[in-house]
Nucleic acid binder design. Structure first.
Length: 734
DNA sequence: CCGATGAAACACTGG
DNA sequence: GTTTCATCGG
């Protein structure tokens, strides 16, 4: 029984649990992944279950890959036939196999967020509605929410006029998706559920195959996913789920931690196992995290225990910077200090924040200090214009019906197909009840003999040329490996000449395209369709670099499942964490708290909590107050050091501010790139200054305006004054 | 029909 | 601070 050897009693109970429903509630760092991988190995080795009969579902591709390799290591052989993947990948796979039951073909494409929004806009336009009244993002949220709760257009409640309208947009949106032979993320789940729900034979064939179903991060499943799992496990009822209510952070995506309760109700004969032994953090870190999370109601009480040999550990450090520049400077300073004294290596650090926008100042601070960093987030790359262009072309090759991709690239690079030609194309397509892509292909094939030639107007020849190019690629897609196809497309498009215009920006854009080309080599033998599917389903977590010798910058959401020796959590201000949009809803507030908890429990040894008394949001400085979550950390767990006290209230007249960035070479503006001579501010918020007639005061803000520096000063004698630096004759005291 | 320019709107988390 | 949309001159 060597598979059970290196497990603690609780883990062993989970891994060797008898068949049937099993619920494992696993605290952070308690060996959740370990239990799952050992369970799979146990089923195969000890229970004699064929890998072919096992399905394991995770939330990210990274988790899947990791699980796969760990299982293979445990068994010391490769496993064939095991289904291991994300919910979305699993659904895509099922849907491509069951074409005959579905209203789309197996060459369907998956629409990303931007595609979805532009299709919603189209639906709103089609229905002659006002975009101001029905904001595409909010409509999209409503539709997504409906899909996550198994509501199809016909079921969408028309309880208010607005809902009735949204229901109509929803219906139109689905029509447009089908016309493009496309699915959005939610459709992947919903169509699969529907397929299994409406076709008992199909359901049985999958449910019979999957003797064992295992699920990771169960607390983040939504209703569709829950019902999907029920169907998949409906024959054997061997469903093994692992999760932690306290780490449920995807409510806004429909995740419902109450699925844990639902599970206990639906599977009465199930076993429930708690994992409380923590292998990651010091007891101090755990105590702080526990104090934060215990304020939440409706949770299974857990007592997190650290390993005795980890000791008590160091206290948490709280630092309050004067502003968000100081916040970033503090993080960088600390990292430099700790690494130069050899107490830590660069790769030991993670800096976590609530919103992606917060990464900018941090990046600038790292660049200024000449420190490397790793930024987690797929959007950085896949959101770029040049990347989206080329992906759109690839998707058109795979699926010419894709209207969104067509609209994106039909005139990129410019080829004389303007609005008028595009409208003509649309009209011709609609009249013939075919897709615009088909019209293009027909034009290229039949030329002037095509019935469409006369309909599309003057640009017919240009459209035919474009169609011919597309048809050519489609023919080559069968014969050529993906990298060769991609190269041909770039060449025929003249994309390099188009994008690499000699500027620095053009150069970097072209480098991105080259990077995408490099990616195609990894799909040389899997082909276009696998490539596109993976592009659509990459998660931010999939971009976490392995073993980087650099600090990692990431959102608290992206941090789930990871661990670092030293963790900085920045932006601990009310309005940032907890986020503004959550302040008025108790459920959302509970989730913000869990998010903070997730961040804290990523740390092995040290935690730095950082906030800023002022934050530059929307271009102007605003005072902020400390996050209410800080109040829940017992004072005896916090370090007095760091130069700052707790309970500190930000006031602009306060002189107790200190930005911790005295080592820096200059104000942030000095780092701005560009050769144009830029006037640099001499004064900075937080400085004490003296004026000939008004005496001493504190600089509140300063910016360059009209070739002069404008300084806002709060004088001890006369209060607030706005001054022009060239005239005021201010003297810096400190 | 194209590209440049500037105003306006906009930012929470992400498969 | 960034992106998107609208407008205008060529």
């Amino acid at each position: 029984m060597d598979i059970l050897n290196d497990l603690n009693p609780q883990q062993r109970a989970a891994v060797a649990a008898r068949p049937g429903p099993v619920l494992v509630l696993a605290g952070p760092g308690s060996g959740k992944t370990r239990v799952l991988t050992h369970r799979i190995a146990y089923l195969i080795n000890q229970m004699g279950v064929s890998p072919y009969h096992i399905l394991a579902v995770t939330f990210t591709n990274k988790a899947s890959r990791e699980m796969q390799s760990r299982v293979e290591k445990l068994l010391d052989r490769s496993v064939q036939g095991l289904w291991l993947g994300t919910f979305h990948a699993m659904c895509a796979r099922i849907l491509r196999r069951e074409q005959q039951f579905l209203p789309f073909t197996s060459s369907f494409v998956i629409f990303d967020d931007d595609d979805q929004t532009s299709l919603i806009k189209r639906a709103i336009k089609d229905l002659n509605l006002d975009e101001k009244l029905y904001k595409p993002t909010s409509v999209h949220a409503a539709i997504s929410n409906a899909k996550n709760n198994l509501l199809q257009p016909k079921d969408y409640p028309a309880s208010t006029y607005r809902d009735e309208v949204i229901g109509r947009i929803y219906r139109r949106y689905q029509e447009l998706l089908l016309a493009s032979n496309a699915l959005d993320f939610d459709d992947l789940l919903l169509y699969t559920w529907k397929l299994l729900d409406e076709n008992p034979a199909v359901r049985e064939s999958y449910a019979r195959r999957f003797e064992h179903v295992l699920v990771d991060e169960f607390q983040d499943t939504n209703l569709v996913q829950y019902e999907l799992l029920r169907h998949l496990a409906s024959v054997h009822q061997n469903i093994f789920v692992v999760g932690d209510e306290d780490q449920s952070i995807y409510r806004w995506r429909g995740a419902d931690y109450r699925n844990v309760l639902r599970f206990e109700e639906d599977y009465r004969n199930g076993q429930k196992i708690l994992l409380e032994q923590n292998y990651r953090s010091t007891q101090t870190v755990l105590d702080a995290a526990q104090a934060v999370i215990e304020r939440n109601r409706h949770r299974t009480p857990k007592k997190l225990r650290s390993m005795p040999e980890r000791g008590t550990g160091e206290k948490l450090t709280l630092f309050e910077a004067v502003d968000d520049y100081g916040e970033a400077a503090y993080v960088v300073d600390m990292i430099q200090q700790l690494t130069s004294s050899r107490r830590a290596r660069l790769g030991d650090f993670a800096v976590m924040y609530r919103t992606n926008a917060q990464s900018r100042l941090l990046e600038e601070a790292f660049l200024r200090a000449g420190l490397p960093y790793r930024l987690v987030g797929a959007q950085r790359f896949y959101g770029r214009r040049e990347i989206k262009d080329m992906i759109a072309y690839l998707r058109l090759v795979q699926n010419p019906a894709d209207e969104v991709s067509l609209a994106r690239v039909i005139n990129v690079p410019p080829r004389g197909i303007g609005d008028k030609a595009q409208v003509g194309l649309q009209v011709a397509a609609r009249q013939a009840q075919v897709s615009a892509g088909q019209v293009l292909l027909a034009l290229s094939e039949e030329g002037k003999d095509s019935p469409y030639w006369g309909q599309v107007g003057r640009a017919a020849a240009l459209l035919a040329d474009f169609g011919a190019m597309l048809a050519g690629w489609r023919a080559q897609a069968q014969a050529l490996p993906l990298p060769a196809l991609f190269g041909r497309m770039l060449e025929e498009l003249g994309y390099e000449e188009y994008i690499n215009d000699g500027t620095e920006e053009g150069q970097s854009r072209w480098e991105n395209v080259e990077e995408l080309r490099r990616l195609t080599y990894e799909y040389e033998d899997r082909g276009l369709s696998a490539f596109l599917e993976n592009l659509a389903l990459v998660s931010d977590q999939d971009t976490v670099p392995e073993e980087a010798e650099a600090p990692t910058l990431l959102t608290l959401h992206a941090a789930k499942g990871l661990e670092f020796p030293v963790v900085f959590i920045v932006g601990l201000d009310d309005g940032t964490l907890p986020h503004n949009r959550s302040l008025d809803d108790p459920e959302e507030m509970a989730e913000e708290r869990r998010l903070f908890y997730v961040g804290l429990t990523r740390a092995k040894n040290r935690v730095y909590l950082v906030r800023a008394a002022q934050r530059n949001t929307f271009g102007s400085f605003q005072d902020s107050i400390p996050s209410r979550f800080l109040d829940d950390i017992p004072v005896n767990l916090l370090q007095e050091g760091g130069g700052l006290r707790r309970g500190f209230q930000a006031r602009r007249s306060s002189t107790a501010l200190w930005d911790g960035g005295s080592q820096r070479s200059g104000p942030p503006q000095a780092a701005r790139a560009g050769s144009a001579p830029i006037l640099q501010p001499r004064y900075r918020a937080g400085m004490r200054v003296s004026h000939p007639s008004w005496g001493e005061g504190l600089v509140v803000d300063s910016r360059i305006q009209d070739d002069d520096e404008r300084v806002d000063v709060f004088f001890d004698s006369v209060g607030f004054k706005r001054l022009a630096a060239s005239l005021a004759n201010l003297e810096i005291i400190k």
